[in-house]
Each structure stands twice: as structure tokens, then as C-alpha cells.
Design a protein around this nucleic acid. Sequence first.
DNA 1: CAATCCCGCCAAAGC
DNA 2: GCTTTGGCGGGATTG
Length: 871
Amino acid sequence: MGEMEVTTCLTLKDLISTKKPKSDPVTDGRSAYKENMFDRFKISPRLPLRSEPIDLSKHKSFTPERIPVTPVKVAERPQADPWTPTANLKMLISAASPEIRDREKKKELFRPIENNGIEKTDTDLQLMDCVDDIDDLEKRPSRKQKSLGLLCQKFLARYPSYPISTEKMTISLDEAASSLGVERRRIYDIVNVLESLHLVGRVAKNQYCWHGQHNLNETLSDLQRVGEKQNYRAQIACFHFKDMGMEYKCDEQKKGCNMDQQNTPFIELSEADCPSVSSSSRKDKSLRIMSQKFVMLFLVSTTKIISLEIAAKILIEESQDAADHSKFKTKVRRLYDIANVLTSLGLIKKVHVTDERGRKPAFKWIGPADFSAGVEDQKMEVTTTTPSPDSKKEACSLSPASDRVKQRLFRHSSFNVVQSFTDVKRKVCSQPCSPQKPQGVESSDSYASKMAHLATIYKQKTEEDSKHISSTSRNGSTGNAALPFSVVVPVPVKSDYCVQPVVHEVPHKTIHEPLSIVPPSQSHEECTNHGFVPNQPYMYLPSNSVIMLCGNLSEGKASEQLAKSLHLVPGSDFPTSEESNTSKQERPTKRQHTGKDDAPLSLVLPKKSRLHDTQSLWKTVCKPTTPEQLHHVSSGKEYNTEPGTKPNNLGEHTEQVGSTLLPSDHVHVQPAVPPQFLYVPTTAGLNGFNFLVHANHSVGLSPSQLASLNVPYVMVPSSALTAFPFICSPAVPSGANCSSSNGGMNFSQAGTSSPTHLTIGASQMAAPRLFEAAVDQAKNSSPLSTSTGSGMCGGSKADSHDCLSQSVHNAKLHKSPTPSTPKSIRPIHKDAFFKTPGSLDVSSSRKRQRTQTRTSSSAQRKLDIDSSVVN
DNA sequence: CAATCCCGCCAAAGC
DNA sequence: GCTTTGGCGGGATTG
């Protein structure tokens, strides 16, 4: 069957477009289109229609990816996996990047060619066929659908992140190109970057071998080392200063650095899974080198955020001082290319930094950052390669084998405390803020670094207020302020207090990375975007603060006490619902942090009556947070974009998403019972850990509660609490719009590279959702519906019981600081969801003709992707 | 208009 | 001479 189809396909292809006449692009109709399958279809619209059904049937012939065979082999082997809509759905979902998905939902539901069209099902495809040709004519695939990032994802999906050592996967460029339906040139782009990280190795011409991420950490470690050597950090700082208009001693700095290796030699990977032909011989390999340098910048950066501009400048200067504009532009283009691949790998993510000159594109490192610890523990995607489903769920981030057992035990309340604590502790220990520097070293400028982070955050938040920001940022551009723990807690909607967000709220719609607080007053859309329940205020509790959250305490006293020990900010500044978007008055708060780590907390006391919205009344104590920490919050937003997807995936890939969310049933922080928790930050001297303590009763939570919390905590006698400043918050309002009944608690731990975060949600957000529903939500921002799926909870619903385990998993996913973020998840999915693509084009693959490659039809692409879906 | 970055020309590197 | 690589930058898309 498959063969017939293949044949048919080939025939079609031939008919549609044979080799594109290189010499005669014009005749081709448009040189620009020759490579694009879609475009070809445009030329002959009818053909695609027929091909689609065929393609679908082809899927069946693919084997599950897990099999350690080369793609080619796999292709040859007939696959019996039933092609189910569900599988397709999963595949599509996982295939598409979050952003793309999000956008696509809105605009390109019917793109016939690409796989990202999540919304499509087999049926849909069938139905659409008739429309396709028409659509094809007017709707050409979005640029995004052709993006390198997406392509890279597809590419990565074909191979396991952690291939079994024995399996040697070879990558044929031709095959890859044809199966992915792109020209080879694009494959080179991807492979070059991957090679720079040693994820692949060049074996021979047209032939690469897949290493996977086994050695990623080693590679990164090496890069980091080299980066240090290159003194990139100083250069970064230098440019920062320059950008700020401060004439820094850049030159000296630069000179100081050993530029000995003007051209950093391509770092060869020691590991020789495959007889890697030296790639260093190549004269340029600039993309590879650039990629490595780019990564180095991140690794040495204390903030882990590198703006494209700076990266480009540094890279240019290194190569040569001729930094003309055109060169810069080209460099930036290349950086985008690289960044796309790295993003697909889940190593970085796009963010924006704002300085006096405005918003600038930048990327944030979200991959592993600590290489001092055992490499094994640092694997980015533990689950992806884990063969057994069980292991996937249970595997822990740190030491899969041993921890797995613990994890299970962990579920039992009796073990929870100890276990969880232990795990967290280890984790924290292994995740210093800054990989290369021990805490001691870093402590010296930790404050500065914090400030730097702050500055960044602020910038992001308030683009308008560049000046203030700039001043702040100058304090220190180098420190890393990662804190061990941070907590995001839902704030009672009807509190009498208001929260003074540390960071400005993001204007509606604008998606900025870190988000400290989501005011209740915000539009539903806003709330949901951040992964929180609409109308449900959340506050971010920095790790360095000691906070007591109580339900029915006497606010007055609490406030007073807090005021004394904390920095008090007049409530007037607090952004109300209408102000939330525009508020930029936070400055005072930020500035307050002049001291050391124990920067004063800012508190907004009961706000004025001016708040017309009762909801907006709430209070919190906040302290500046690091981008990473905030990121956690923001991640919810991203997640939200595709809420529907999680549930589906969850069953199999609980580790990813669900981990952050604790099902309501298990959450014992119920609104009904005024929760009183003491948050004990690291600074409190508790071994760098933060604890959440149920403060209400001296001893706090019941065993069951503890179990459900699944967070490290200590029971502290109430008497002991007096020493700490605390805040009281009113009982949770009766019904947050969402599933009010449950106080949802989200517990997520950041990856190794970032501080651990705790997220506690007052309301249960996770509700199983159908994919379609999700899509719909995206379109019509229905508050309620959205809320359901919002945020990290997305996956939680899957299995509430596993919340604990999930969180653990999540933690293990350390790879990305933002576990809940789709992106971070993405990588994980890929392996699990994607099978090795069978190659229809086996025969064709053999051919080296570009024509052939280019000819691959969109249908084929779809098929390829789909094939991976199975299972 | 700025940010992105796709596309594919075309030249160097290999064979 | 042909193929493989991949630098490079025009210019289309997006935001």
C-alpha cells in the first residue's frame, strides 16, 4: 500500500515539478517559489488535493521513533501503527511551536501544506481538500510555517534526544531535506548549529551522525570555559556600558581578554560516537563558530540574557573590527538563524530588553547552566529518551534511577517532607545562580546582579520609563541574582489590600517576559495570558523575604509589623485595574533596594478607596525578582496559548506540563479555610531553602496537606513566627470565576539552571480540554474558558494523583527554567511524540539530486510529520 | 518602520 | 566538471 502511494506521490511530484531548471528560473514562474512545495501547488493547484489522501495513508507505514534505526531503515520497515486522529493531533501539536500554534489558530487554520496546522484532523484534511486548492491560491503558507525554527523542530523530532549509545543514527542531508520538504540549504543551517553543540557530527559528505544530547552538557561546559577565557563577560559588560552611553573602558577590557584565539577554534567533541570527520578543516564554518560563540555569551553571562545587538557586535569585532552596518545586519541575520535553532532546542528563548533606546530583541538562556555537577544529572530532557513510559513519569531530574524510587515514595505523605526537601536541596545546590561561580564568589556582586536583573525586568515592563531603568541597570550588569526559591501565590480577589507589584504590569496584549503580579483587575485576557485565572490575583514572593500569608489575621497588626520590617509603600501607587496597564510608578519600589540581598520589601498597604473594583483589593509583599523567577509566572501565558494541547499530551508526558500543577483535589490551600502560610526565604538562614509553612496552626498542615503541598517546608511554632514580618491576606474570596472550589496549587521547580519556583494557585485552573476547545479559546478570548486552561495548570488535570510526581518530573526537566513553558516542553515532546519518520522518499532520498529534494511535496511533509506522531 | 529571517544565488571546498 | 557546503544579503513578512 505504502509503496503504491509513494509511487503515486512521486508521479505527482514529477508532474508538478520536476527538477527546477536552475538555468531558467524565470520560466519556472518565479525563482523564489521553486523550492517551495506549496508554491508549486499554486502552479498546479489540483494536484495537491489528490495527494493529500494518499499521504495520510502513507503514515501507517512509519515506525515508531524509538527504534534505534536510521531514518532510512525505518522508512523501509512497514509500520503498522494505526493512524488515529488523536495521534495526529498530538503530533501536530507537538510539532508546532507554541507561538506558531497560537498565531495559526487565529489566522491560518487551513494551510494545506504544513504540519503545524494543529487544528486539522484527518477528517478535516479530507474535507478541506476541496478547499485547499482555492486556499492555496490565496493563502500561502505563513512565513512562520517555513521558519527555520519550526523546521528545526521537525528535524529534531526525528531523532531521540538521548539515543541509546548503541544506536547510531545517521543523518542523510538529502533525506532530511526531502522528508522535511525543504531545500538542503536549510538543513545545513540547522545541522551546522547542531554540530556546533555536538548534537550531531559530521561523518562524511552528506552524512551526519546523531549524537543527541548526551554530551550536551559537556559541550556547554567546554563552551563556557572557552567563553570565560575569551572574557566574553567583560565584553558584554563593555557593550552594556556603551549602550548606556557610558564610556567604559571597553578597550582595556577587551585587551585584557585573551583574544589570542582570534578565531575560536571549533570545539571538537571528544566523544566519537561516529568517526567524526574533523570539521575544523573547513575554513569558515562561520555559522558553527558563530553559534558556539553565541552560546558562549550566554554561558558566561550572568544574566543569561544576551541581546542580539550585543552578540552581533561582539561577534563582529572578533572577526574583524570592520563593523560596518551591512556586516552588522548580516550578522544579525545569522544570529537569528542560530537563535531559531537554539530555541528549537530549548536552550534559549526570545525575550526583550529595554533600555534607554527602547526595546531590543534578546535571547535568554534557558538551558542547563550548571556544569559543575554531574553531567548526567544535567540532561535537559530526561524523559524524551526514556524508553519506558514508567520511567518517563517517574524519572527524576537529578538521578533518574535512585530518585525514581524516591519519587514514588514521595507520593506518600510520610515521605514527602523528607524526600522533597532532600530533592530540592540537591537541586538547589546544583543550581547556583551562575554556573561558573560558586556562591561565595558571586555573593560579592550578587546585589549588583540582582539589580541588573531588575533593571532588565523593569525595562521590559515599562518601556516608557527608560531613564529610570537605565539608572538602575547601571548598578551592575554582571551579577546573577537567581534566588533559590520564589513563590507565586494567588491573592484573594476580595482582599482589603492591594498588591504593590514589584514589576510593572505588562500592558494588555503586550507579552513581556517576566511578570510578577497579575492584578485581579486585569482583563481576563491578560490574566489568562499569563496562565492565571482571570480575576485571580497572584503575587510573587521573592525568596529573600519572609512572608506570612494568613487568612483571618488581624490585618492591622500584620500590616504594622510588616511596615516596620519591610519597606512600606503607600497604597496610592498601586495600580488599580485601570492603572495596571499603565502604571509605571513602581520606581520607588525598585529603588529602594539599595542594600544587600536583604533588600527591603515593598508593601502596599490597604489601598485607597479609589479602587472602584473590589477585586483589586489585595495586598502582597514583593521584592524584586530575577527575570528567571518572574519568568516562571510569565510562562503561564505561553502555556496558555495552547491549553488544549496539554491534556492530550499529559497522559504520556506528564513530566512536562502537568508537573506544575497540582490538582485541586489535592490542594489543601483552600480558600474556604483561610490559608496561612509562612514563606521562609533562603536568607532566613535555612540552608538556602525556602519553606512554606502553614502558619495558621503552629504545626500547620495535616499530613495529607503536606503531602499534597509537596513542597519543602518546615513546621515552625507560631511563637517563632513572631520574629518575622508577615502579611495577612484575607480569606480567599468565594468564587474566583474559575473552578472556585479548589485552591489550586502549582508547584513547579525550575530547571537546574534557574532558581526553583513555587507557584501556588488559589484556584484550580486545570481543566481538561479538548483541543478544539483550546483553539476556540484562542480565538475568542472567553474569559472563563480561557481561565480553565490558563497557565501551567494546563496539563494538571490529566492526573491529579500524579501531581507530586509531576512536579518532580518537572523539576527534573530542569533544562528550562520555565517548566511550564511550552517551549521548554517542546523538546521533550519531540522524542516522545515523534517517531522516526518513515521515509516515503526512500528511493528518492538516495538520489542526491536537489531536484528531488525540492520536489518533495507538501503532502509528503505532512506525512512525515504525521508519521512521527504515532504512538 | 523595525524586527525577523526566508530564499536561493553563487562561490569555495571537495572529489 | 560536478557536487557539496554554506556565506551572504536582498527583500518579503510580521509586528
